[in-house]
Write a protein that binds this DNA or RNA. Sequence first.
DNA 1: CGTAGACTTGACGCCTCTCAACGTTAGTGG
DNA 2: CCACTAACGTTGAGAGGCGTCAAGTCTACG
Lengths: 255, 255
Amino acid sequence: MNQHMRHNTACKTCSLSPLCLPVSLSFSEMDRLDDIIERGRPIEKGQYLFRQGDPMESVFAIRTGTIKSFALTRAGEEQITGFHLPSEILGLSSFGTQHHQVSARALETTNVCEIPLEHLERLSSQLPELGRQVMRVMGREIREDQQMMLLLSKKSAEERLASFLLSLAQRFKRRGYSEHNFRLTMSRSDMANYLGLAVETVSRVFTRLQKSGIIADTGSAREVHIADQKRLCDMASLSEGERVELGLIETTTTH
Amino acid sequence: MNQHMRHNTACKTCSLSPLCLPVSLSFSEMDRLDDIIERGRPIEKGQYLFRQGDPMESVFAIRTGTIKSFALTRAGEEQITGFHLPSEILGLSSFGTQHHQVSARALETTNVCEIPLEHLERLSSQLPELGRQVMRVMGREIREDQQMMLLLSKKSAEERLASFLLSLAQRFKRRGYSEHNFRLTMSRSDMANYLGLAVETVSRVFTRLQKSGIIADTGSAREVHIADQKRLCDMASLSEGERVELGLIETTTTH
DNA sequence: CGTAGACTTGACGCCTCTCAACGTTAGTGG
DNA sequence: CCACTAACGTTGAGAGGCGTCAAGTCTACG
C-alpha cells in the first residue's frame, strides 16, 4: 500500500492540484507523480522542514499550513525570503547546489508532500509537461522575487504593507478562502523582516490602516478584515507586474 | 551552411561554454544545441533585445557586451532587475507566460545567442543534462534575486555599493578579466536604480571609497580600480550566501 | 494567575532623499 | 578640429521617513 494511500491524499483527489505541480497532467501521469511523492507526519509550529546547509535531496509542496523560508546573514539574523501557502513549491532556489541555501520553518502545523529530486528529474524527462511545469513554477518565483526587489527599493512603508496584504488576499482567494477576512500566520516581526521595515513601523502602519477605515479592527492583531479593497489597492501603488499577478489586468501591454 | 558557422561561434569553440548552457554536454550534444541557436547581428547600445509585453519566443545567452533588464512601474519609471554579462542567460523570468515580463536593453554593443523556446524544450527532453542545466541556471537566478532582497532590505548605501562592486569583480574574474580593474558599462543612475538608492548617494559613496583609498581615482567615473579588496569585503558585510557566490568560502555550513 | 513573548505607542535622531547648482564628458555638426 | 549641447556626474544644504530606544499594554500558555 502506497504511503499516499494511507493518508488518502493523492494528487488526483487533491483540490490544490490545479495550482500545484500536477497541473495539466493526465490522471495516469498524476499516478506516476504520486508514486514518487512521500507524505510524512505533520510539521509542528516552529519545527524546521530543512535547514540551510542540509543536503538537498527533495523539494516540497505544501498541502496545509504555512512555511517561512529564510537565509542567515553573517550576523546571524535571518532574512525571510518568502511565506509559502498550500500548493506552493519549496526548495527550488537550491537547484544546482548540493545543499539547501535557505532554512524552512513552519509558522503553524503544516503538511507537506516531499518530492525526491532524483525521482523528480527522472520523471520529468519522461513527462515533458511535468518538467515544463517545474520551469513555470521557477519562472513565477523569479518574477515574484523581482516584484519584491521593486517593493524594497522603491516603495514606502505604507505601500509595502498594502502590497503584502493584497498579495495574501489574492493567494487566499485562489485557494478558495475569503479574500477579505483571513488570519495572519506570521508575526509582526516576520512581516517587518520580510518587508524590510522595523516592527514598530509595521505596527504603526496597521494602526493607520485601521484609523482610516481601510481595514477593520477585529480585536486581534492577527485577524485581518479588508474593509475597503479599492483604497488598499490605491495605497499599494501596484506595478504593472503586480497587477498582472493579482488578476487586475489580463495581460501585460506593450510599451 | 549553418548560421553559427558563418560567425565562427559554435558552443564547442566558445570560451564561455563552461559558464553557459552547454556545461557538461558532450561534443555531439553541443552540436545539437548549436543547431537550434540563432546568432544574429550585434545589438547596438541603447537598442532593445526585447520589450515587456513582447511575445516570448526565445531565451538569450550573452556572448559579448552587457544587457540591463528592467520592469516598468505604474508611473512609467523603470526598476532594473539585473545586469547581464557574457555567458549569462536572459529571459528565464518570463517562463510560463506568453509575453516577456521585463524589457532588455543593451548598455554597449552586444552579441547574443538566441535560443528558441520551442526547440529548447524539445531538446531538453532529449538531453536531460540540458534540462537540468536550465534548472540550475534558474535556481541561481532565484538565489541571486534573494541576495538582492537581503541587500535592499538590510544594507546601508555603503554596503550596497561595496557588494555590487565585489559581485562585478567576481563575475569579471570568472570570465578571465581582471578582478581589480574594470570598466562599468552602466551609468550611476542605472546603478542607483538597481541598488535602490538615489544617484547622488551613489556618487557620494564612490567619493568616500576613493578618499579612504579602497578604490583608486582613475580619472574616469566609469573606470574602477579596486585598491584594497579586503577592506571592500569588510565594508560589504557579506552574507553567508554572498560569500559562497564570491568563492570566499567553500560550502554553506550547517547552523 | 503569573510570566514571557508579542504588540503598540511615543520621542528622538540619523541616513538617505530631494532640490539646486555646478562641473565634466561624450557625441554632433559646422 | 573645435564649438555646442545634452546627458552624465559631483557636491552642498535642508528636510523627512523610518529606525532605534524606551516604556507600557496585551495575549497566550504553563
